Amino acid sequence: MTIKPLADRVVIKMEEAEETTKSGIVLAGSAKEKPQVASIVAVGPGGMVDGNQIDMYVKVGDKVITSKYSGTEVKIDGEEYTIVRQSDILAVVE
């Protein structure tokens, strides 16, 4: 099954949270921070959204930083994805 986002939406897959600190301390599951870096899996076509023309500036494969608790989390075929608006993406990591 594939996900095809509509309008200005982007499907991202979050990177795994670090399990150890830089000093080598292993973190418990509840102590891990929610990751903010993600890979783009699918990009919507853009177009007219709320009367404004939206151009898509990100592409599949880009690594991005998102707002901490933005988007809608979905689980498809055992994989977890997040669907966000392009405006919820804060930066592209190069």
Rank of each mutant, 00 (worst) to 15 (best):
D62P: 03
K22E: 15
E16Y: 01
Q86H: 08
M56A: 03
Y81A: 10
Y69F: 12
D55W: 02
T2I: 03
T82L: 03
V26S: 11
L27R: 12
G61V: 11
M1T: 13
V74S: 01
G61N: 05
S39P: 01
V11G: 03
G29C: 01
A31S: 12
V49M: 09
G71E: 05
E19T: 14
K59N: 11
G51E: 02
V92D: 05
K22V: 14
T82M: 04
G24D: 08
G51P: 05
K63Y: 05
T82E: 05
E33L: 13
L90C: 01
D8C: 06
G47E: 08
S39R: 09
K68V: 06
G71Q: 07
Q53C: 05
A31T: 06
D55L: 09
L27T: 10
A91E: 13
R85A: 14
A91R: 12
Q53Y: 10
D55F: 07
K75H: 05
S67Y: 04
R85N: 12
T2Y: 02
T72H: 03
G46S: 06
L90D: 06
P5T: 01
K4I: 15
Q86Y: 00
V84C: 00
G78Q: 04
K63S: 09
V93N: 12
G44W: 01
M14H: 07
S23M: 09
L27Q: 06
Y81S: 07
Y57L: 12
A42V: 09
E79D: 11
